[in-house]
């Protein structure tokens, strides 16, 4: 599924460029959910932006493939059409563009890039109602401009709404738990768990173990200074919670 091999990447341009990822290797097979944990500044968000192709994040060496396809050469929209989805740590407000218009435009753009037929308006509305219902997002909220006037928790639920609508093959969830109270966390986790499937992979980036009580990972990786320094089962997350990053990272070094 997702294969990262000795990935090096820097942020910024010219003299300002700072290397952030320094030889990151990772494999997430289809059907699995992996967690990436790490202290602030380890490169967690950089990894999510490098994989989705954000401007200003430059891969200097190494490879990244999704189902064998080199994604690093693709435009962001082509990566999305290939099935890569990012739930943003800080979802962006888009004034003037209603949620329904936005998601439908995105869905049809992806379908077009893949050479598929557009979704019909009734089918889209039916699906949006179902998914919205699961996430406690009512019809009125889906008519509002994307993220404008949404609370932190509503923005995160809207990210999961988009994910469930677009049904990506591989999802990256960047600090999806931040800004969520416990009820919202459960709702979001239920949405993510509902998407677990044998042909879908997920990478859950988080600072705290709390989210992983609700989204059980198959593997946990510790990211520090731009590399995976330790990998293990779900019990590794619990150890991090008890011993802190210093303890676990110190042991690896």
């Amino acid at each position: 599924m997702l294969n990262l091999n000795d990935l090096h990447a820097s942020v910024g341009e010219g003299d300002e460029a700072r290397p952030i990822l320094k030889g990151l290797s990772l494999e997430v097979p289809a059907g699995e959910v992996h967690a990436i944990m790490g202290p602030n500044g380890a490169g967690k968000s950089t990894l999510s932006y490098v994989l989705t192709g954000r401007e200003g994040y430059e891969v200097t060496s190494g490879t990244a493939t999704l189902n064998g396809e080199n994604i690093l050469e693709m435009e962001p929209e082509a990566r999305a059409a290939a099935g890569l989805f990012l739930s943003f740590q800080y979802p962006v407000e888009i004034p003037g563009v209603p949620v329904m218009t936005f998601v439908r435009t995105a869905m049809n753009a992806q379908r077009k890039l893949r050479g598929e037929e557009e979704i019909s308006a009734p089918d889209f509305i039916k699906k949006a109602r179902e998914v919205g219902g699961q996430l406690n997002l009512n019809a009125e909220m889906l008519k509002r401009p994307v993220n404008v006037g949404f609370s932190g928790g509503e923005k995160k639920r809207l990210e999961i709404f988009q994910m469930m609508m677009l049904e990506p093959r591989f999802a990256i969830l960047d600090e999806t738990d931040s800004g969520l109270d416990i009820d919202a966390l459960k709702t979001v986790a239920a949405g993510v768990n509902a998407l677990r499937a044998p042909d879908r992979g997920m990478l859950v980036i988080t600072h705290y173990q709390r989210l992983l009580d609700h989204i059980k990972p198959d593997r946990v990786h510790v990211l520090s200074a731009g590399r995976i320094v330790k990998s293990g089962g779900p019990e590794l997350a619990l150890r991090l919670e008890e011993e802190g990053y210093d303890g676990v990272i110190g042991e690896a070094a």
Partner: peptide, 8 residues
């Protein structure tokens, strides 16, 4: 970038 990440 947000729009392009969604495939637009």
């Amino acid at each position: 970038f947000y729009l392009r990440q969604r495939g637009i």
